[in-house]
């Protein structure tokens, strides 16, 4: 609020504003409280939308309670008929995060830090990947070669370590960026340790996880056929929503073939800090994979088999 020379001036201004509001020319339902952006150490944080930002609710607690039962952007309030500044900025921030999750690549630093080798698909660029949905389902020539190198090498390492004659990896984990690189960076470091530790504790052999760049769900079929493993687990970035840019899915397939269809897959979605925490999902997947190996199937068949 501006500084006024005296009380009289302020009263005049306020009465004019009140008149304008009646005629709809001045922001009506706007109050003083903003979305509650916190400034820490001189840095402005994103406005919070966990709490209502409308100012003159008949029952504020009720709106607060409504926000507890939905993530929908309600209780926003308005200025005239438009969104208030902070919720509008937050919307843009969430959309930016979602777009960046899709259009940016998983960083090389991340892959290096997590010991993940990259396998390429026929979609050489993000643009190809988005425009030609089939390209991301097929490995490139080079990708196939590299897959064999890494995974066969792994079998040998396994034999050395355990001095057993198991010559096959039972479970191959692939990590595909899909429609969210952000999901990969956010969840993989948390989901892999309990997953690998759990599978090994259960006596299941696991191949070295690899990263499939510009990969889609169905690329797992080719991986499975190339390697001859029992189960392929594809940890893949989901199409981001606003505020869920880091959500990841886990697709599982038992011994895929050319005839494999979508109903043959088992899917666990919504893996991220705001859904099923990745570290918990990792432990859950261990149980699921044990079921799959026991019943030797996935998808609709697995649901039937366990009935």
């Amino acid at each position: 609020m501006a500084n006024y020379q005296n009380d009289m001036e302020r009263m005049i201004v306020e009465s004019v504003l009140a008149e304008l509001r009646k005629s709809g020319a001045a922001p009506a339902a706007c109050g003083n409280t903003s979305g509650g952006s916190v400034i820490e150490d001189g840095v402005i944080n994103l406005p919070d939308i966990d709490h209502p930002t409308l100012t003159n609710a008949k029952n504020y607690a009720a709106v607060e309670a409504m926000k507890q039962v939905t993530n929908a952007r309600i209780g926003l309030g308005r200025c005239g008929t438009r969104q208030r500044t902070d919720t509008w900025l937050r919307f843009q921030a969430d959309h930016a995060a979602a777009m960046d999750a899709v259009f940016l690549d998983v960083s090389d630093d991340f892959l290096k830090a997590n010991n993940l080798e990259t396998i390429t698909t026929q979609a050489a660029t993000k643009d190809d990947f988005l425009r030609e949905p089939n390209w991301g389902t097929r490995l490139s020539e080079q990708g196939i070669k590299k897959l064999h190198e890494i995974c066969q090498q792994d079998t040998r390492i396994h034999e050395q370590r355990f001095q057993t004659t198991i010559n096959k990896v039972q479970v191959q984990i692939i990590i595909a960026d899909g429609l969210s690189s952000r999901a990969i960076e956010a969840n993989i470091p948390e989901i892999l340790p309990p997953l690998v530790q759990g599978l090994e504790a259960a006596g299941i052999t696991v191949g070295t996880p690899v990263f499939v760049k510009n990969g889609r769900v169905r690329v797992m079929d080719q991986v499975g056929m190339e390697l001859g493993c029992d189960v392929v687990l594809n940890l893949i970035g989901e199409r981001p929503g606003l505020g869920t840019a880091s959500s990841m899915s886990a697709y599982l397939i038992y011994r895929p073939t050319k005839e494999t269809v979508e109903a043959d897959r088992t899917l666990i979605s919504n893996i991220y800090a705001g859904g099923t925490p990745p570290v918990e999902a990792g432990a859950q997947l261990v149980d699921l994979i044990q079921d799959i190996l026991k019943y030797q199937c996935t998808g609709v068949k697995l649901n039937e088999a366990t009935k």
């Binding site: 504790a201 570290v279 432990a283 859950q284 261990v286």
Partner: peptide, 18 residues
Amino acid sequence: GADCGKVLGQCLDIVSDH
């Protein structure tokens, strides 16, 4: 309280060597 019973259980099982 938090949604992490499975992984905590798994870790306890491993830490205690089953």
